[in-house]
Write a protein that binds this DNA or RNA. Sequence first.
DNA 1: CCTATAGTTCAATAACAATTGGACCAAGGG
DNA 2: CCCTTGGTCCAATTGTTATTGAACTATAGG
Lengths: 122, 122
Amino acid sequence: MGGIAYLVGMSKALPHPGPEAIDLSAVLDALRDPIRRAIVLMVAEEGERRCSSFLHCTTKTNLTYHVARLREAGVVRVRVEGPARIVSLRRAELDARFPGLLDAVLAGTRQDPPLARLVETA
Amino acid sequence: MGGIAYLVGMSKALPHPGPEAIDLSAVLDALRDPIRRAIVLMVAEEGERRCSSFLHCTTKTNLTYHVARLREAGVVRVRVEGPARIVSLRRAELDARFPGLLDAVLAGTRQDPPLARLVETA
DNA sequence: CCTATAGTTCAATAACAATTGGACCAAGGG
DNA sequence: CCCTTGGTCCAATTGTTATTGAACTATAGG
């Protein structure tokens, strides 16, 4: 293998903001949506999950959108593993930058019955 | 619309959600805007402030809009006093419902230099 | 190669959010 | 009463967000 076609296919690294570049408006913006909060809660409780494990929340296309918003805000990390995308929480970086914020939002999310129905331990 | 006599007896009490009706999505939605966070920070540090003391942030009309969003989300209380509106923070209710959330957001807001320029001790 | 699984991209739409300007209302002091 | 201060209401505009469907790319297994 060689040449341009090979390189194009290798665009695996997804853009993530650095730890210091995580912005409060962007984080609150990401966490304000119930679907995204459900995803974050599931990732917080299981450590790592594949994108496909969130398909009960919405459609495939829409999931790509919401996961990208969480990633671009610096809330989650997305890693490519074979054909799948593995989502994990950027807890240490978030806690360092905005102490207590994530835990407060997660606690509030757990108390939210309509939203808790979106949270599946798959 | 444009009524005259009918509006004279209009109630002065502005609608606020009850303590248990404060919704996480609505709160995060209210706090995601930098102008609104600046307002909340000023109210948090001074206790009470008139709407007009925020006019350096934006226009009069727009201020009505942002203060209403904060009030409807349950973040602030607005009281009519003569010709003025007095804004105060619903700290106890917010802390009871989402412990740590407000403090985390306020701390993050204080660290935000571009936003801190909107915060004036008037 | 064929197929299934996993996910992206694009274009369109619908809904909602922020901002502005002008007219208007309400209270208090000359 | 007039005038100023403080703020609301309305209509329009612009911008952003969420959601959908169809077409597409990428990887792994048979």
